[in-house]
C-alpha cells in the first residue's frame, strides 16, 4: 500500500534519509523508532507529499507520488490522516471547526451532517463536551486527542502519528495509546507511528482491543506472537534503516545500535 524505494532526502546540504526502502501492507502498523533527528518525522512528511525526496520513489497504492503536483496530491491526502506532534490545531478555529475542517472545505455535507460526524469523532476520542472550546482552552493531551479526531475525519485508510505521546504524563499517554490500539483493532486502520518512546511502542505492539458483550472496549496483553505479525518496527540510525522486523526480533536483535536503543 505504501512503499519507499531507495529514498534520499536532505535539508541544506545535510542528508536526513539515505537509501530508505520499506513497505507497509494494508492493515499493518509500522512503528518507526530512532533518536531525535534520525529522520523519523521526515518519512511521514514524505508520505503526505509535504516535502519531496531528492531521489527514489514513494508509492501509495502503486502510484508514484514523487512527481505529483499539489493539486494531484489532494486525492492522495484524502486517504491519509495525520496526527501532528503537538496536535497542530488551527488556533483561530473552534474544536468543532478543527475536527470538521475537511468536511467544511469539501462542502459536500450539510451543516447538520457535519455536526453529527464531528460529535461522533469527538466521542471516539472522549471529548464530545469540548466541541465549542477553542484550542487555547485545551490541555496538551486534549489537543492531541482532538488532533486524532481531526485526522479521522473522512475515514482515512491510513493514519500517520508523529510522536503523539511526546511530553505527556503517563495517564494521558496511556489514553492516546489506547486510542491508537482501538483504531487499529476496531477500525482496521493502517498506521505509521513515529516515536522515540519505546514504552508506548511496546504497548502498541503487545496489547489489543476487543469489544465485550456490553459494547465496552477492553484492552488485553497479547501472549501469543500471532498478532505481532501485523506490527513491525523500523529503527533509524542517522537516516539509515538499521533494523526492520517485529517486536520480538527487535528485542532479540544483537546489532549494537539496536541494543543501545532497546536497553
Amino acid at each position: 500500500m505504501i512503499e519507499f524505494r531507495a529514498v534520499d532526502k536532505s535539508f541544506n546540504d545535510e542528508t536526513v534519509l539515505r537509501q530508505v526502502s520499506f513497505r507497509i501492507r494494508p492493515g499493518e502498523t509500522k512503528i518507526i523508532v530512532g533518536a531525535s533527528g534520525s529522520g523519523k518525522s521526515t518519512i511521514l512528511k514524505l508520505i503526505l507529499g509535504l516535502i519531496r525526496p531528492e531521489s527514489g520513489q514513494i508509492l501509495i497504492e502503486g502510484r508514484d507520488i514523487t512527481a505529483l503536483g499539489e493539486e494531484e496530491m489532494v486525492s492522495v491526502r484524502r486517504q491519509i490522516g495525520m496526527v501532528f506532534q503537538e496536535g497542530a490545531l488551527f488556533d483561530s478555529l473552534s474544536v468543532r471547526e478543527n475536527v470538521g475542517y475537511r468536511f467544511f472545505e469539501e462542502g459536500t455535507m450539510e451543516e447538520a451532517e457535519i455536526e453529527q460526524e464531528v460529535l461522533r469523532l469527538l466521542g471516539f476520542v472522549g471529548l464530545a463536551e469540548a466541541i465549542d472550546k477553542m484550542p487555547a482552552e485545551l490541555s496538551g493531551g486534549m489537543k492531541r486527542r482532538v488532533g486524532i479526531a481531526r485526522a479521522l475525519a473522512g475515514s482515512p485508510r491510513v493514519v500517520l502519528y508523529d510522536e503523539p505521546t511526546a511530553g505527556l504524563d503517563p495517564i494521558t499517554k496511556r489514553t492516546i495509546v489506547e486510542l491508537m490500539i482501538k483504531l487499529r483493532d476496531l477500525e482496521g486502520v493502517t498506521s505509521v507511528f513515529v516515536t522515540h518512546d519505546l514504552q508506548a511502542a511496546t504497548t502498541i505492539a503487545s496489547e489489543f482491543a476487543t469489544v465485550d458483550g456490553e459494547g465496552r472496549v477492553r484492552f488485553s496483553r497479547e501472549k501469543a506472537p500471532r498478532r505481532l505479525l501485523n506490527i513491525n518496527f523500523i529503527l533509524l540510525e542517522n537516516g539509515r534503516i538499521c533494523f526492520e522486523g517485529n517486536h520480538q526480533q527487535l528485542m532479540d536483535c544483537e546489532i549494537p545500535y539496536v541494543r543501545r536503543f532497546v536497553d
Binding site: L48, A88, F90, D91, E105
Partner: peptide, 18 residues
C-alpha cells in the same frame, strides 16, 4: 510564522487545503 512553526500550515496541506 506561528502557523509554520506549530505545523498548522503542514496540517492545512495534509487536510487538502492550499
Amino acid at each position: 510564522g506561528s502557523m509554520v512553526v506549530s505545523e498548522q500550515i503542514n496540517a492545512m496541506r495534509a487536510l487538502g487545503t492550499d
